[in-house]
């Protein structure tokens, strides 16, 4: 039994290492400026924990699988020096990893969006996302709760008749953004907690009713991606998603003009 268990442990360890090494299943390619930091933090942590994982499993397997010795074990109640040394090394390593991740976290959250960022409001509801661009005046018109009505397509409760700043606002069901330019999203929810997650962007942020949560990022590659909800929001949670279109600056302008024309 000892040999069988030791063999199983070694096999599980080898299989895990091979699957990580060969990247049989892996992250989708990164398309944001902050993503390289996330991927770097992951790789570093993978190396550190990978070494600890292999060492612990192999020592365990060795203890279990080796030929049993006769007689009694040595009466050994511990080794304070080794225990303290291990605690210090482990502590320094883990705290080092956490501190190392500071750079990426700061880029995501401590530094605000640059002034040239494209500002877009995101409104989440069960089970859809809506996006609003401020239009040429650069101002989001005021929202009136009682005017919010999905049936008439007034997802943000705008009153263009009274509010001139609302007149040029553009509301879409697709999030279109320019490549290589900072984007700032203002996340809002009208009912329950939702989330905004684009695996390729390495961005995930809950959308909490009663709060406006800003996030910012810069996409580095054009293409079509998916925004998905990651916070359990009700029966349609699994199907709550919206398309993300990353376009060149010129294409983005054309696209936005087309959306404006359709309002």
């Amino acid at each position: 039994m000892g040999k069988l268990l030791a063999f199983t442990m070694v096999a599980a360890t080898v299989a895990t290492v091979v699957l990580f090494w060969r990247r049989v299943w892996w992250f989708p390619p990164n398309i944001s400026t902050v993503g390289a930091g996330v991927d770097g933090d992951f790789r570093l942590t993978l190396w550190v924990t990978g070494i600890l994982f292999v060492a612990a499993q192999l020592i365990l397997a060795y203890c279990i699988g080796r030929r049993p010795k006769a007689g009694r074990a040595r009466y050994l109640t511990g080794n304070l020096r080794m225990e303290v040394a291990w605690a210090v090394v482990a502590g320094a390593t883990f705290i080092g990893l956490a501190l190392h991740s500071y750079r990426t976290w700061a880029r995501m959250y401590f530094i605000g969006a640059p002034p040239n960022a494209v500002k877009i409001q995101v409104e989440a509801e069960q089970f859809a996302y809506w996006f609003r661009y401020p239009g040429p005046d650069g101002v989001f018109g005021p929202m009136h709760l009682r005017l919010i009505n999905d049936a008439t397509g007034n997802y943000f409760g705008l009153d263009p008749a009274r509010d001139p700043t609302s007149r040029d606002d553009i509301v879409t069901a697709t999030l279109g953004i320019p490549v290589d330019r900072p984007v700032e999203l203002l996340l809002m929810s009208r009912d329950v907690i939702h989330s905004f997650y684009v695996p390729e962007l390495r961005i995930q942020q809950d959308i909490v009713p009663g709060m406006v949560i800003p996030i910012h990022f810069t996409a580095t590659r054009t293409g079509n991606y998916e925004i998905v909800c990651t916070q359990l929001c009700g029966l349609g949670h699994y199907a709550m998603r919206a398309p993300l279109k990353v376009m060149t600056e010129a294409k983005f302008k054309q696209w936005l003009a087309r959306q404006a024309a359709e309002q």
Binding site: F42, T45, L60, Y197
Partner: peptide
């Protein structure tokens, strides 16, 4: 008990990834 140690290591080490906020951003709720 031996299995516990093996499984605990395999499950516990991934906690280090999730403890780092930027890595958690990618892995949270997955």
């Amino acid at each position: 008990a031996l299995g516990f140690v093996s499984i605990f290591v395999s499950g516990g080490l991934s906690g280090i990834f999730l403890a780092e906020p930027p890595v958690d951003v990618q892995l949270h709720a997955t």
